[in-house]
Amino acid sequence: MVKIAAIQMQSKPNLGEENTTKAISMITEAASKGAKLIVLPELWISGYYLSREEFDVFGEKPLGKTISLFQKIAKELNVVLVVPFVEEEGENIYIASAVIENNGELLTSYRKSFLWGREKNVFTPGERNYNVIPTSVGNIGVLICADIEFPEPSRILALQGTQLIICPSVWSIPAESRWDIQLPARALDNTVYVLGVNTVHEGSCGKSKLVAPNGKVLVESPRDEEHILLYDMDLSLIRKTRFDVPYLDDLDRNLIPKSTPAINY
């Protein structure tokens, strides 16, 4: 059993310090309630509807001030943190997410690979490399927002032994029905847990949720409130679901690139 926490918060545009203070407060509260894996939403520090020039202000290296701060917090609270940030490299900026172990080690940084709408005028897409991340709370994979709308990244992660796919997002109200469809679909397709972590207000639909490997929504946040979603995730349910629903066992292996690692669950 692993207690997870999704931090559903309002990201106030351009108010990085205020957003950071709130994020730390909510993370600390989640940890005090026993959470061992805590996830922030996409672009939580900056807000979403900004210009390229405004996003440039928030750009930093993976070991910049924001991630360095949360490395200290992860160690102090003994929790694994998934912290999205605006990553800069040369003249490019990316929507990225850092995964920090409970000892403060930066395990990896993932760049969003499928940009949506206006994002294409601001950000550079990351390379489409999807890799399982072994952590002290299990094998996780990170996809960001629109990445979860494509079946292939989730399948690649599942075939590498990912137990939980984490999807930090800024998911809009007009696209709410897709949020409700895509997360359960990716979970059931691959018989893995999926955790969608959304912002709220500013045009977002909220409804952060944890979906079981059988596609059932186990817990969901409100549409219009800041909320700390908490749940004791039973990883043994993956093996049980795969016995009942053997999608991956029955998959035509001829369709899988030979370079894909064998599944390990």
Rank of each mutant, 00 (worst) to 15 (best):
V192I: 11
R186K: 11
L183R: 01
A30E: 12
R111N: 07
E29R: 15
L43D: 05
N214Q: 01
R186T: 06
H227M: 04
I238Q: 02
S109K: 04
C145N: 11
Y130R: 05
L195H: 08
S259D: 15
R128I: 02
E17T: 13
G126D: 07
I166N: 01
Q8L: 01
D249E: 11
L255P: 09
I156V: 14
G34R: 04
K209G: 03
I238T: 07
L164C: 06
V79P: 15
G126V: 05
S11T: 10
P13R: 12
S204G: 08
V211W: 08
L106C: 10
S68A: 12
P62I: 02
L230P: 07
L37K: 07
A96E: 05
N103H: 03
L183M: 10
L230K: 06
A175R: 13
F55S: 09
V137N: 09
N121E: 13
G90Y: 13
A30F: 09
Y265S: 12
Q71V: 00
Y231Q: 05
Y265C: 06
M1F: 02
I156W: 00
E149H: 06
V217R: 08
K240W: 06
I7T: 05
A30I: 12
L195V: 02
E149G: 07
E149F: 07
E101S: 15
S172H: 14
L164A: 12
P13V: 05
H201T: 14
E101T: 09
Q10A: 14
I144L: 09
P257R: 11
I228V: 14
I73S: 12
L69Y: 05
V197T: 06
I156T: 13
V83S: 06
I263W: 10
D224G: 06
I93M: 14
S68K: 10
I100E: 15
S204L: 04
D249G: 01
F243C: 10
E225C: 13
V79F: 01
N14W: 03
G196S: 08
P62F: 01
L218A: 06
C205L: 06
P13W: 09
R239K: 15
E29D: 14
Y48I: 08
V57E: 05
L106Y: 00
D147I: 04
L159T: 03
L229E: 12
N198F: 06
L37N: 03
S136A: 13
N19A: 00
G196W: 09
G161S: 01
C205N: 15
A187T: 07
G117Q: 08
